[in-house]
């Protein structure tokens, strides 16, 4: 039964990702889009962890770790890119 609840939670998270996508498309500034994609990435990691527990596939967690790294790198890289000079950290 817990597995069904986890799967349901994963489905709700995907719906929330679709909702946040509105901000990524609409903008209006570039930073809004980066922020929305960062939230989407975090939710992706959580969805993967939920699926890993619900479907009992332990190696999904390794993929989730890679996603978490990639998501952080992407947000910092695009923020850095939108600033002409100077740091963002």
């Amino acid at each position: 039964m817990v597995n069904d609840i986890l799967l349901g939670a994963a489905a709700v998270f995907v719906v929330l990702v679709i909702v946040v996508l509105y901000r990524a498309v609409r903008g209006p500034t570039m930073q809004d889009r980066v922020l929305a994609v960062n939230v989407i990435g975090t939710n992706t990691v959580v969805i993967l962890a939920l699926l890993s527990a619900a479907l009992d596939v332990p190696y999904f967690l390794d993929i989730a770790l890679v996603y978490a790294l990639l998501n952080f790198l992407m947000a910092v890289a695009i923020s850095k890119f939108t600033v002409e000079r100077g740091g963002v950290m």
Binding site: L21, A24, V25, R33, V37, I40, Y67, M74, I78
Partner: peptide, 9 residues
């Protein structure tokens, strides 16, 4: 940026 989100999905 949106294409990156596409890739994640």
């Amino acid at each position: 940026i949106v294409f990156a989100a596409y890739s994640l999905g």
